[in-house]
């Protein structure tokens, strides 16, 4: 039995618990990337590329790996969605979900 995968699985279970009891909030890098994406999108529903988000001053200071992890996390949470019909990384900010 893989001890680390049990630990990883426990982390996933407790992450779900965190979400279900409403304790999940954005980490600092997630917040920076979300604000950067929101600023770059300008109009509601407009799609932006990952490079555009990363070029914003709010996100450009983050290490690449941190930036991508935060972006992935925001997609996972649903605050940023992959734009439909595009093969390349285009994202839509769901600012309508903020505060819900």
């Amino acid at each position: 039995m893989n001890k680390l995968s049990a630990l990883f699985s426990l982390r996933c279970i407790l992450r779900d618990m965190e979400k279900d009891i409403g304790l999940q909030e954005l980490s600092a890098p997630e917040m920076d990337v979300f604000l950067a994406a929101n600023a770059m999108a300008r109009d509601e529903g407009a799609a932006v590329t990952s490079d555009q988000i990363y070029s914003h001053e709010m996100a450009s200071g983050l290490a690449q790996a941190t930036y991508h992890r935060a972006l992935r996390s925001l997609v996972g949470i649903g605050l940023i969605e992959k734009a439909n019909g595009y093969k390349v990384g285009l994202y839509v900010v769901r600012s309508d979900l903020v505060g819900k």
């Binding site: 407790l14 980490s27 600092a28 890098p29 200071g61 941190t66 992890r69």
Partner: peptide
């Protein structure tokens, strides 16, 4: 116990993210 572990994992996550900046 589960809540304590949840916060421990949360802090580890924050710590690793802030270290990666």
């Amino acid at each position: 116990c589960m809540v304590v572990l949840m916060f421990c994992f949360r802090w580890v996550r924050w710590f690793s993210l802030s270290k990666g900046q």
